[in-house]
Amino acid sequence: MGAVTYPDEKVADFVMQRMVPVQVGANMPLAAEFKVKWTPTIVVLDYYGKEHHRTVGFFAPEEFIPNLLLGMGKVDFDTDLFGNAIHQFDILLEEYPKSGVAPEAIYLRGVSGYKSTHDAKPLKEAYEKLKAEYPQSEWTMRALPYSLL
């Protein structure tokens, strides 16, 4: 990450503008607190220190930013800020539709839409989009019950 992804200008701009970056060695006590067993481990926290998203292993720049957007969306989702979560997922899906995390973003966008309106339509739309665009994704399977709504 330190050799390829973090020096990338787009990644650096994204991180510096939208997050507070912290870097800690895996030999430090904080790593034990977070039960880190392998590096790189990337964790997205809310500003109270609660974990909402974690990844392990290398990410190239074009896949790292959508991963961070997913994590930011999950911070908003977990704290019931569903409109904000939808905004993060929309950015991800508009700018990085081929990302490996796009199907999860579609799924969580649908759930966020339901949670904010109590209308089942966003769930069904999420399933239809997943089925059409990512038929092999596990998130399409997870959304299968919404096809019955």
Partner: peptide, 30 residues
């Protein structure tokens, strides 16, 4: 260039002040 914090407590304070989430990277120190 990313300017990293090394102290999570300080980063959380910044996060609250700037209304930003935290990116916490655990790296292999070698």
């Amino acid at each position: 260039m990313i300017t990293w914090e090394s102290d999570l407590t300080k980063a959380l304070g910044r996060g609250q002040a700037e209304k930003k989430p935290i990116l916490l990277d655990f790296f292999n120190p070698g």
